[in-house]
């Protein structure tokens, strides 16, 4: 079984680490930057080849850890070749285009997993896990703090200057990026962070599972400098790893006739969390445990099992106990 990783940035390198630790012995790795390939060459001394994902027999699964944008083009070719595809893109455009590949994936009987990173990804899993404990889900709010590698930081910067999309009542509402300040409380060491609207894809994926919810929203943490400079080019090179960070899912609804709020969160390095989710999900797809077609993780039938597997990769999951979170 060959698993391919396209894009060996900060998250891609972590994906490779998780795959090796999960027992994958044949890897096909590719990055347009030869330096990135050389940096992980020591990590994968045996059982790895450096070639484009479709440079030979199609791999069982391909994890797209490339920067956001144009992932759908690559995903379509891979699906047509018969590979499962897992995308960690957090660009709304990528997510919409990848979801449109559903007929292609179904036709080939493979999975196109959309948004298998931290948010979307783990945030969707946490929301679904909370939603499964309620009789009816009224509102889901996802908040995220921190970034993974430089490509993720650039997407964070871009997200803040573009409109955020919330599902309100019975339609999509687009509001300015950087608006809608909301103080979100994350586990230590992140703590309280002001979070804002932005071009975030989580509501698109959540709406597929909760079409009758009254509100589906996503926020991303930002500093005053982030917001002040959001409409300018990035002032300095992003960090190699923008962690630690956190993701949090707050779900409100009804249980036994009364209103309930359930809040789950994870505080860890986004690069490692996103990689753990992508690796676990890719192997489940290979094992035939992923739904065929294009899906987000909140639509999966066995969310508890996926969360246990992610937890087993060293990702601590917390619940908020108390009111007024």
């Amino acid at each position: 079984m060959t698993v391919a990783v396209a894009g060996i940035g900060t998250t891609g390198a972590n994906v490779i680490r998780h795959l090796i630790e999960l027992g994958v012995d044949r890897l096909r790795l590719h990055d347009i930057n030869p330096d990135a390939e050389r940096q992980v060459a020591g990590l994968v001394a045996r059982g790895a080849e450096f070639a484009p994902p479709l440079g030979g027999e199609p791999p069982a699964a391909v994890i797209l850890a490339t920067p956001c944008g144009k992932q759908a083009l690559m995903a379509r070719e891979l699906l047509e070749a018969g590979s499962h595809v897992v995308s960690i893109s957090d660009s709304p455009e990528d997510v919409v285009e990848l979801l449109r590949l559903d007929p292609v994936a179904r036709d080939r009987g493979v999975s196109m997993v959309v948004g298998a990173g931290m948010a979307p990804g783990l945030g969707c899993l946490l929301a679904r896990h909370a939603g499964d404990q309620l009789d009816q889900v009224d509102a889901v709010s996802i908040a995220k703090a921190g970034t993974a590698g430089p490509a993720c930081a650039r997407q964070h910067h871009l997200a803040l200057k573009r409109p955020g999309r919330d599902w309100v009542g019975d339609g999509w509402e687009f509001r300015a990026g950087g608006s809608g300040r909301d103080l979100a409380w994350f586990p230590d060491p992140i703590g309280a962070r002001d979070c804002y609207r932005g071009a975030l894809p989580s509501p698109i994926l959540l709406h597929r599972q909760y079409p009758n919810a009254k509100r589906l929203s996503a926020r991303v943490s930002a500093t005053r400098r982030d917001r002040l400079t959001a409409r300018l080019p990035m002032m300095r090179e992003p960090h190699d790893d923008g962690g630690p960070g956190a993701v949090r899912a707050e779900v409100r609804g009804w249980r036994d006739g009364s209103v309930e709020t359930i809040i789950y969160a994870v505080a860890a390095f986004p690069s490692s969390v996103a990689a753990a989710v992508a690796a676990v999900v890719a192997l489940r797809a290979v094992d035939g445990k992923a739904p065929a077609g294009a899906t987000g993780l909140c639509e999966w039938p066995d969310v508890g099992e996926v969360l246990r597997a992610v937890h087993g990769r060293g990702v601590p999951i917390s619940v908020f106990e108390g009111v007024g979170a």
Binding site: L183, W185, P187, D188, A192, Y264, A265, H311, P316, I317, S318, V319, F320, E321, G322, V323, G324, A325
Partner: peptide, 10 residues
């Protein structure tokens, strides 16, 4: 910020 409660690892 919340005045009561806290995070517990699952």
């Amino acid at each position: 910020a919340p005045q009561s409660g806290g995070w517990r690892d699952l």
